[in-house]
């Protein structure tokens, strides 16, 4: 399954992806982007929004 993934070293923590996520799956916690994998439905809105390329869709590793 693909889910959104944040690349912290690229991210400026602007929070725009939080606003465009239709699943309410992204939060800005302690100024870091946190993604709720359960809610993410792989729509890619955050990836298309991100001004710097800090969001990507990634194969979820089995925990």
């Amino acid at each position: 399954m693909m889910v959104a993934k944040n690349i912290p070293s690229v991210c400026l923590s602007c929070g725009g992806c939080v606003g465009v996520c239709p699943q309410d799956a992204i939060s800005l916690k302690d100024m870091k982007i946190v993604i709720d994998k359960e809610k993410c439905n792989n729509c890619g809105a955050c990836v298309r929004f991100c001004p710097v390329g800090a969001m990507k869709l990634d194969e979820e590793r089995g925990d």
């Binding site: 602007c14 725009g16 606003g19 465009v20 239709p22 309410d24 929004f49 001004p51």
Partner: peptide
């Protein structure tokens, strides 16, 4: 207050 992607500009 969710923003539709069409209604958000990406700023840098």
């Amino acid at each position: 207050t969710t923003n539709k992607l069409i209604n958000v500009d990406s700023g840098y």
